[in-house]
Computed example of a mutant assay.
Amino acid sequence: MSVTGRAVILGVAFIFLLAGKISVAGAQEEPLPPEVPFQPIQKLDIVVNPASKARIKFESDTFDFGSIPRGATVVHSFKFANAGQDTLEITSVRPTCGCTTAPLSSNKVAPGDEATIKAYFNSKNFNGRLTKYIYVNSSDPIDPYLKISFKATINDPLLPINMAPLEADFGSIVSGAPGIVKVTLTNAGDSPVDIRLIHESAPEMVKASPTSMSLQPNGNAELTLQLAAQDKSGELKESLTFDITGGQEGRFSLPWKAVITGQRQ
């Protein structure tokens, strides 16, 4: 091969080599895609049997207490049923806040049976509107991890009803003796309103009367709470929730408490 031919071949090879370097260099300079943050896998509490026919069904997975007094405890029972054909097991009930406890009536529910998760919320350290959550894990393979919630407004300034007192306190009562407390409800709004009891957290303990009433502006009515005789000593904290309709709408909860002591002589 002539010297000229070799020069041409070497020149072409050099051009291809140079193009490859430029291409590689250009590829290295392209920006990399943003790095996705590492997401650790959360450890689950249970291993769900996919063949299980247990089915959890809540009557309602949310509740609104409406306006509540700061510092009091309000209570709501979340009812659920096993709508399946196998025994339903509740493996954990976890409130997301130390302000809430949520005891479970039974952790095993037979097909067709019901149980409750009773949420106790202490409003001591809160103001304004809030929402709290409770996580429920079960053996239902379709919905093994559920979330129920409640909300409230601490001392809602827009509530047209004033309560006196803000919390019904039965005081100290000897075991086996009944108790009674009267609460005055006043319509502080400009329109007539209707008030109706919609939820009792412990209907077997306290009966409210009347359960519905109508109030004109500046009108008031007396609500009577009667505590049935209790056999076990200890502190009781429960609540009643009322809806307001008519000229103005709203909702409020009336907490009540009692301390049952000793034995009746």
Rank of each mutant, 00 (worst) to 15 (best):
M1R: 15
S2K: 15
R6C: 10
V8R: 12
L10A: 15
I22Y: 04
A27Q: 11
E29W: 15
P31T: 02
L32R: 12
E35F: 13
Q42Y: 05
N49D: 10
K57F: 11
I68K: 05
V75R: 05
A81C: 11
G84Q: 03
G84N: 00
I90K: 00
S92E: 04
V93E: 11
G98Q: 14
L104W: 06
S105F: 08
G112W: 13
E114N: 12
A115F: 11
T116Q: 13
S123K: 00
L130Y: 15
V136S: 09
I142P: 00
I142R: 11
L146A: 10
F150A: 01
T153E: 14
I154H: 06
D156S: 14
L159P: 04
P160S: 02
P160D: 00
G171Y: 04
I173H: 03
S175G: 06
G179P: 03
G179S: 10
V181H: 00
T184L: 07
N187V: 07
N187K: 04
G189Q: 01
D190H: 08
P192A: 04
P203G: 08
S214A: 08
N220S: 08
L225E: 02
A228G: 13
E235A: 09
L236C: 07
L236T: 05
E238P: 03
D243R: 15
T245F: 09
G250E: 02
R251T: 01
S253V: 13
L254D: 00
A258P: 08
